[in-house]
């Protein structure tokens, strides 16, 4: 099949504003959406910029807006996007983030928020000889949250992020959940002080866009609700 691939292009050195460009791309229904972009870059227009690394849904580099929804380009198949020859697939950078070029966004703000929630183990007790142990049942509480690959699809799908650029966003707060509910961690107080703030948990209105966008099917809203309850009982 041949598809009409539309890409939102923007080169800050040349363009005043982003604009759409169309390309005819031969495709197989079992191709990934990323394959369409790579065809454009390798065979039609080498100036197209995009991020990708593993291309297997592990690194989280190629999160972007595909046909209006935030997805990982490598993890969605053509047959799940369109079903007829000549159909259109639209690619745009993740919304609510500054665009560096074409599909590449500036992620610095996203990772600043990530660092704010102290996404590391806080435990001042001397480490045991081998390792800090955790039972399977204790790990189960945070198991799903550990699957986050920090692709940013959720945070940039959240209307609270669109409205308030300073809002911590689901990705960072999911990390806060992941460490706060980790039985080996002692940093609950300082982490909750960060998320229990004007730009934190309370701007989550349980819209569920994050759940829809997550390529790892993490039930983010559920874990943020658990974090809200923990914040409420410890405040």
């Amino acid at each position: 099949m041949t598809l009409n691939v539309e890409i939102k292009r923007y080169n800050p050195e040349k363009d005043d504003a982003p604009h759409w460009e169309s390309y005819e791309v031969p495709a197989d229904p079992l191709d990934s959406a990323l394959a369409l972009l790579l065809h454009v870059k390798w065979h039609i227009d080498g100036t197209l910029s995009l991020r990708k690394s593993c291309a297997h849904g592990v690194c989280g580099s190629d999160a972007m807006q595909i046909n209006g929804e935030n997805k990982l380009a490598c993890s969605v198949l053509v047959q799940d996007l369109v079903d007829n020859d000549g159909a259109t697939v639209k690619f745009a950078p993740l919304p609510a983030a500054p665009v560096i070029k074409d599909l590449v966004i500036d992620q610095s703000r996203f990772f600043e928020k990530y660092r704010e929630v102290k996404p590391w183990l806080i435990n001042d007790n001397p480490a045991p000889e081998k390792e800090r142990k955790q039972s399977p049942a204790e790990h189960e509480i945070i198991e799903e949250a550990t699957k986050c690959i920090m692709c940013g699809a959720c945070t940039h799908a959240c209307p609270s992020t669109w409205a308030s650029p300073d809002y911590l966003g689901p990705a960072a707060m999911l990390k806060a959940y992941r460490y706060t509910f980790d039985t080996r961690d002692d940093g609950e107080g300082e982490r909750l002080d960060t998320v229990d703030s004007e730009n934190g948990l309370w701007k989550c209105y349980t819209i569920f866009n994050c759940n829809e966008a997550c390529p790892k099917d993490i039930d983010i809203t559920r874990w943020l609700s658990a974090l809200k309850r923990r914040s409420a009982v410890t405040a």
Partner: peptide, 16 residues
Amino acid sequence: MASRAASTSNAQSWFL
């Protein structure tokens, strides 16, 4: 569970 300084918290309003 650690208790925290409630002065900056918005949790009570959310809970209410």
